[in-house]
Design a protein around this nucleic acid. Structure first.
Length: 569
RNA sequence: CGGAACGUAGCGCAGCCCGGUAGCGCACUACCUUGGGGUGGUAGGGGUCGCGGGUUCAAAUCCCGCCGUUCCGACCA
């Protein structure tokens, strides 16, 4: 491919709207062009990378028996109502104005609809169906270039099984295929236990790439092997427990104590002996929640514990109406209304606690939660903090930001029950199909790759997904010897099966070409110029390391082959 | 949806406070020059100053409304 004829609109300056390196470099390298917030055109150079990522995904999905299909992006709204997900998605789902259609944000419903029509016997399973298609989500705030956008490519796979053991096997196959996919794309990644959220299901794991641009926090310890999204991460924190003396609860005035820290400072109460009370609404039902000291409530855990679609903190006026006091003075005793109470597991059976009196400016001490409160369940509701002991080996947890590049779910029967996708077992009994769902964000793989592999000059592609494996830089192609050699290398390298981008532009200075080559970031740059040709040599530069090898003209193809092999092509 | 900033040529920006016929760099066109790390020069082309209204003799500039983009927060199947 000749660069003079290929459409690569590179930019010298960084467009103002791009903040993170992958977004800046995709724009500067002429890979993408923004059309509107969270909506991008993929230009030829960028689309080559996308296609390579999709090809790797296809190969690995096919290898575990997956069958690719193509599904409608326009869906009748009705089918999404049957699973309750019009409401669950809310404003995130695009609705067509002049038809009763929605733009599909994912495809569980459509797959289940197909299964309901065609999969009726235990003999028909297992099945793995997948698609690589555009998904639409009305993100309230697109950001970070293609990482969070309103229209994006996702590989979605769905497994259909006739037993829970079958689901485990299908899930495991996907787990292994995903590891191969990310490795082949040259990504460093890790896997964490995750929340299945509104997708439903019994378990899920996320494939994560560590990045400051990440929107997820993950807690992990490399020695013990524990790794979890902060939404579900646990730590081995001691329970607050009981003390021997257990006098009656006693009210005392705390006119200037509004926070746990105030109680600690003014009255010398150990922070963990404070039962911090919070009021949350879960699908419009209020709950009183107790946390120990300054432990941070984890809203994802609360939502899971309450099995709620939506949760939110109570407003100030609601606090007063429900408890009798403003925030900071709420507790288990003398509540104005009888609202359900749940508490973090650290507080289980604790006594000798301090908590609000439901009267502004007063607290109770010597509270026994078993005696003085009416707590219906104790569950883990804490947000773990870096340094706390992990739940496996008690090693200190680290917390890092990460980008989610894949998510695998054991869905179970949520969708098959809702859409009546049933099969008969060998006894003739009817059961809902047992499903799994497995997603990969295509553009996130590309973005994460660039986040992990770039320097001040540009991108450093891994050969597996580089737009071209080899760039040939013709230094002063007006010189016949230079041009003839460059063209010969182009032909020989292409004949050897490589993808080659030959910078044949005339009237462009060498420095300009070198800068462009570094920006575009092909793994190998074959530099053809008089300087070395006069000695019968050519310079070959490795983008990722900066290493330069001077090789005889006759060895160019062999050298490229061996370098690409070294680079893991 | 809350808070903030920005919107002037394809890109990056100045001009706005203090109203008077729109500028710089890059890119683009032509010619010359240079030729191993974004050469140097000469001459050009390109802008309803986001949109609408208002104030004024006169608005990129002041006022009001809207739209868009980005950042922080909320949300994120």
């Amino acid at each position: 491919m000749r660069l003079s004829r290929y459409f690569i609109p590179t930019l010298k300056e960084i467009p103002a709207e791009a903040v993170i390196p992958s977004h800046q470099l995709m724009l500067r390298a002429g890979m993408i062009r923004g059309l509107s917030s969270g909506i991008y055109s993929l230009l030829p150079l960028g689309y080559r990378v996308w296609k390579k990522v999709m090809q790797i995904i296809r190969e690995e999905m096919d290898a575990i028996g997956g069958m690719e299909l193509h599904l409608p992006a326009l869906n009748p709204r009705e089918i999404w109502e049957e699973t309750g997900r019009v409401e669950a998605f809310g404003d995130t789902m695009f609705h067509i104005k002049n038809r009763d259609l929605v733009l599909a944000p994912t495809h569980e419903e459509i797959i289940t609809h197909l299964a309901q029509a065609f999969v009726h016997s235990y003999r028909d399973m297992p099945q793995i169906w997948y698609q690589i298609q555009t998904k639409f989500r009305n993100e309230p705030r697109p950001k970070s270039g293609v990482i969070r956008s309103r229209q994006f490519l996702m590989k979605d796979a769905y497994s259909l099984d006739n037993s829970w053991e079958g689901l485990d096997a299908s899930y495991q196959k996907h787990y292994e295929a995903y590891c191969r996919i990310y490795s082949r794309c040259g990504l460093e990644f890790f896997v964490v236990g995750a929340s299945s959220g509104a997708m439903g299901g019994s378990g899920s794991q996320e494939f994560m790439v560590e990045s400051d641009a990440g929107e997820d926090l993950c807690a992990f310890n490399l020695e013990s092997g524990y790794a979890a999204n902060i939404e579900v991460a646990a730590s081995r924190m001691p329970k607050v427990g009981r003390v021997d003396e257990n006098p009656a609860a006693e009210k005392f005035a705390t006119p200037t104590a509004k926070s746990i820290d105030d109680l600690v400072e003014q009255y010398g109460i150990p922070a963990e002996r404070c039962a911090k009370a919070l009021v949350y609404f879960a699908d419009e039902n209020p709950y009183l929640i107790f946390m120990s000291g300054n432990d941070q409530l984890n809203e994802a855990k609360l939502q899971t514990a309450l099995k709620a679609n939506n949760i939110r903190p109570a407003h100030d006026d609601e606090l007063v109406a429900l408890t009798g006091a403003h925030g900071g003075s709420i507790g288990p005793i003398n509540l104005k209304s009888n609202i359900p109470q749940i508490a973090d597991a650290r507080l289980e059976h604790a006594n000798d606690m301090v908590s609000g009196a439901n009267e502004d400016g007063f607290h109770y001490r010597a509270i026994d939660l078993d005696r003085d409160a009416n707590i219906q369940q104790y569950v883990d509701l804490r947000t773990v903090i870096e340094g706390e002991p992990d739940p496996i080996g008690g090693q200190p947890l680290k917390v890092k930001k990460a980008i989610e590049v894949g998510h695998i779910f054991k869905l179970g029967t949520k969708y098959s029950e809702a859409l009546k996708a049933l099969f008969l077992d060998d006894q003739g009994n009817s059961h809902p199909i047992i499903m799994g769902s497995y997603g990969i964000g295509v553009e996130r793989i590309v973005a994460c790759h660039i986040e992990q592999r770039h320097d001040k000059d540009g991108i450093c592609w891994h050969p597996s997904i580089a737009p071209f494996q080899i760039q040939i830089t013709g230094v002063k192609v007006e010189n016949d010897t230079v041009r003839e050699h460059a063209e010969r290398f182009e032909a020989e390298l292409e004949a050897a099966g490589f993808e080659v981008l030959y910078d044949d532009r005339t009237g462009v200075s060498p420095g300009f070409k070198f800068k462009d080559a570094d920006l575009l970031g092909m793994p190998i740059n074959v530099i053809v110029g008089e300087k070395h040709l006069n000695d019968g040599n050519v310079e070959i530069k490795i983008r990722s390391t900066g290493e330069r090898r001077i090789v005889p003209v006759a060895d160019v193809v062999a050298t490229c082959e061996s370098i690409l092999a070294e680079l893991g092509a």
